[in-house]
């Protein structure tokens, strides 16, 4: 397997002086292509901070981070924004869809924002993804009219729209009933197998973690297992 990304000796401290809170304390991590890994750890262990750094939404205080051979710390805002758009997908706990847009419009957003318009090719892929998520009859529904599970499946489809190498999922099933949670995880596993997309799924749920081939445990700001 090829190495997708590598974090080395990463520290992250919020605040300064006496108010400084050190969240990551020399964390190192490597993820390969087509991995499906669960990120486990108690609240406050640094899981969300780690995902945020991996998603290039935040830079660590120190340490190194490379993905696809590129230095993710040296890049400027525009450079990282473009990289994120092409190579990283996000699934949030509360789906975080754009409320004034339809399911299809939400899904194709990452492509449309890159190309400056909604192309037919993007619409076709968006429809295809929504069909794979079992939402072919909800394509033009405003997201406000969808159930929680449907919204989360739209969010998964959106994360996959630009065929990213990495999808970061922060508690993707945390807000769903168990049936919906299993449905979403099955979809993730299927895409991981078929498209060799690497998934890193933050979760407190051991059942969800057990569906992943690798478990990464974070504790006290470092990888402990």
């Amino acid at each position: 397997m090829t190495v997708l990304l590598e974090l080395r000796d990463v520290f992250k401290t919020y605040g300064t002086g006496e108010a400084a809170t050190r969240v990551l304390r020399g964390l190192s991590l490597q993820l390969d292509g087509a991995e499906m890994a669960a990120l486990l750890g108690p609240s406050g262990s640094g899981k969300s901070t780690l995902l945020t750094i991996l998603g290039t939404l935040m830079k660590p205080t120190s340490g190194s981070y490379t993905m696809l051979g590129q230095d993710m710390i040296a890049g400027g805002d525009n450079e990282l924004t473009e990289f994120r758009n092409r190579h990283i997908g996000f699934v949030f706990q509360f789906h975080n869809l754009l409320p004034d847009f339809t399911a299809l419009e939400n899904v194709i957003f990452p492509t449309a924002v890159r190309e400056g318009r909604e192309t037919n090719a993007a619409r076709m892929r968006g429809r295809d993804l929504l069909s794979r998520m079992g939402l072919s009859d909800r394509i033009n529904f405003p997201t406000a009219n969808l159930s929680g599970g449907q919204k989360q499946r739209v969010a998964v489809a959106r994360a996959l729209m630009n065929r990213p190498e990495l999808v970061l999922a922060d508690e993707p099933t945390g807000n769903l009933d168990s049936a919906s949670a299993i449905q979403v995880m099955d979809l993730i596993a299927q895409i991981n197998r078929e498209e060799e997309t690497t998934f890193l799924i933050s979760t407190h749920d051991e059942k969800i973690a057990n569906l992943c081939r690798r478990q990464i445990v974070v504790g006290d700001g470092v990888v402990t297992g």
Binding site: L57, N78, T81, R84, N85, F90, V113
Partner: peptide
């Protein structure tokens, strides 16, 4: 603000 944050995360530039 939350929507702007989502757009930024999805690759929308400033």
């Amino acid at each position: 603000r939350p929507e702007i944050g989502i757009m930024r995360a999805m690759g929308a530039g400033r």
